[in-house]
Amino acid sequence: MKREIHPTFFWLWAFFLVTALIRLDEIRFNVLAIFATVALVYLFGLTPNRARVFKLALRLAVLAVFIRMLFAIFIGVPMPGNTLFTLPLIQLPDFLVGIRLGGDVTTQRLSTALAEVSLFAALIIAFGAANSLTTPTKILKAIPRRLYGVGVATALATTLTPQLAASVSRVRQAQFLRGQSATGIKSWRRIGTPVLEESLARSLDLAASLEARGYGAYVNPSRYRAIKWDLNHLVALLPLIYLALIFPLLTIPSSLAIFFFALILLSPLVALR
């Protein structure tokens, strides 16, 4: 049977990974971290719903890179370095001192931007991975027993959002069937009313279901198949913690460093699969 992974594991992993990347501060580590994270996510396996969440994170990261590089090319302070190509300079009013549109695009300028944005993309993907590998319901169940009620309530709220999106698209289609193109502010009333009514009805159903199943009626709820932190979890996480907090890795030759880093990134695979 597949080993159960503690719901907080991937969140901690993402946190220490990002910390390590900030300390290492090099593009190649960031890029490697991105690839390793994507590999981990697919090796640990996702359900279709969760895969959608991860794809969203990937798309967000790509968007971030795209926007940052666009800015790097068109706007920015002049920087020394090899000029790759030159864009026509656009005159801006006097009060915008220091901002320049167009001009020389240098390698230096691009690489600084790339360093920044690759870290940012790695951050989005690392936490996107954590979010998609552990469902919100599970992580909230892992919180202390006294907060069980709060946990369930929050989990319910998070699972209701996709349902709301689904009913908006369904009602939008229904309005289209009445010959109404559903765009603009006016359409919001036509869509909003049925959606609100439906979500109200749904909440009532849910409340009835919770009540009928004894939610809140008993003082001491118990935990089904609680997953514990064990040695394997620690083995999987410790190298990364070490890297993030203690050892900046730069003291060993750089060709070895990247190899070492790759090993660390794959440690969850060895310890937890």
Binding site: N49, T135, T137, K138, V152, A155, L156, T159, L206, S209, L210, R213, G214, Y215, G216, A217, Y218, P221, S222, R223, Y224, R225
Partner: peptide, 16 residues
């Protein structure tokens, strides 16, 4: 309440 079949079934017992 839950996303996964098994958790959903267990939820009833957890509250009890």
């Amino acid at each position: 309440v839950c996303e996964i079949v098994e958790d959903e079934i267990a939820f009833t017992l957890e509250t009890l």
